[in-house]
């Protein structure tokens, strides 16, 4: 049987331990081992952004990160975006602006947008479009997504 490794990581603020094979991507570990299916698989080769999460403050494609690389990292997934007090402003804005249709790309877009606004709270349309170019959406034509992010950006 293939080697299995124990990984300890901080996931949405909680320390989590899991066992995985080195060949398993972080995306697989989240979905298949930890049962956290909010992070989506769209292409499994880094070209659609559906599996975007935030690792140590940077957005990454979790299909291109090995689970074992999560050791010692701080990871935020879609499951960690809302708080008991309510939705994250970006989540609220996506809802109000109808910035999702099928919703499969939405977690990735939300994490990518959070990654941007955490760093650049006043990002403009050009910056948002550049930042989100690694996230594909096939339903909306991006218009409402960009507007939803802009709305939160301006609010800050």
């Amino acid at each position: 049987m293939p080697t299995v490794t124990q990984v300890q990581t901080t996931l949405n603020g909680e320390v989590v331990n899991f066992l995985c094979e080195p060949r398993q991507s972080l995306l697989e570990c989240l979905r298949d081992i930890l049962g956290m299916t909010g992070t989506k698989e769209g292409c499994n080769d880094g070209n659609c952004g559906a599996c975007t999460l935030i690792m140590d403050g940077r957005i990454v494609n979790s299909c291109l990160v090995l689970g074992v690389e999560a050791e010692g990292k701080e990871i935020t997934t879609i499951e960690g975006m809302a708080s008991p007090e309510g939705l994250h402003p970006l989540q609220q804005s996506f809802l109000e602006n109808a910035a999702l249709q099928c919703g499969i790309c939405t977690p990735g877009f939300l994490l990518a947008s959070k990654g941007l606004l955490d760093k650049e709270p006043d990002a403009d349309e050009g910056r948002i479009r550049h930042w989100l170019a690694g996230n594909l959406c096939r339903c909306t034509g991006y218009d409402k997504i960009v507007r939803a992010v802009l709305q939160v950006s301006k609010a800050k």
């Binding site: 956290m36 909010g38 992070t39 879609i78 499951e79 999702l100 919703g103």
Partner: peptide
């Protein structure tokens, strides 16, 4: 706001692959 909206922005919605 759409009825399935909150589930879809929080990652709770259950897609086929989930």
């Amino acid at each position: 706001v759409r009825p399935d909206g909150v589930d879809k922005v929080t990652g709770r919605a259950q897609y086929g692959g989930d």
